[in-house]
């Protein structure tokens, strides 16, 4: 069911684009992981302080919510890069590997358009939130901050998906194989 290429062997050697994208995706995921990790440490500290009678950390719940939104966005590109979005392969196993690969290429290209559309709308949303000046209730953190990682994550996913889809769609693009 996982997205898996039966003919992974026809992969070309890793090019420069591949290496750069991989670094950026890994970096984003690492930052996202660090954010959610930091949030959990903050909550644990808040729990300990509250039980010691020192008072909890104000806005710890909000911090976790902000961290969740940030990490959801920052995790995306790596998942796209690793072809981690699940699908059901059960009903297409009878097709030839090449046909399957072409189908996956079409869906990956659609995925690229989907992420690009989302990135475009999020940029509008970012503008709106910036204009309204909405802030979270306790931490008074501007809500538009959270839109920055969202915009970054969806836009990068669009780029990754687009570059991945081309060699899957046609041999002409084989040279630029991204994983």
């Amino acid at each position: 069911m996982a997205e898996r290429l039966p003919n992974e062997t026809e992969q070309a050697p890793h090019g420069r684009v591949f290496l750069i994208l991989q670094r950026v995706c890994l970096g984003a995921a690492g930052v996202g992981g660090a954010v959610i990790f930091a949030a959990s440490i903050t909550v644990a500290a808040s729990v300990i302080m509250r039980n010691l009678g020192l008072g909890g950390i104000r806005g710890d719940f909000e911090l976790v919510e902000l961290a969740c939104a940030a990490c959801a966005s920052l995790f995306l590109p790596l998942c796209q890069f690793n072809k981690g979005h699940v699908m059901v392969d059960l009903f297409t196993l009878w097709l030839s590997p090449l046909t399957q690969r072409r189908m996956d290429g079409v869906w990956t290209l659609l995925f690229a358009f989907g992420w690009a559309f989302l990135a475009w709308r999020l940029s509008v949303g970012l503008g709106e939130m910036h204009e309204y000046g909405d802030r979270t209730m306790l931490l008074r953190a501007p809500v538009w901050w959270v839109y920055l990682p969202a915009l970054f994550g969806t836009a990068l996913s669009a780029v990754v998906a687009f570059l991945q889809s081309l060699p899957m769609l046609s041999h002409a693009f084989r040279a630029m194989e991204v994983r």
Partner: peptide, 26 residues
């Protein structure tokens, strides 16, 4: 639809209930 997608991503994931998912996975 356009208006929905302006904010839906952030709305959905600025959420305490969903935050426990990455925490437990970690």
């Amino acid at each position: 639809l356009m208006a929905y997608f302006n904010t839906a991503w952030v709305d959905k994931f600025m959420s305490y209930e969903l935050a426990i998912v990455p925490l437990f996975i970690l």
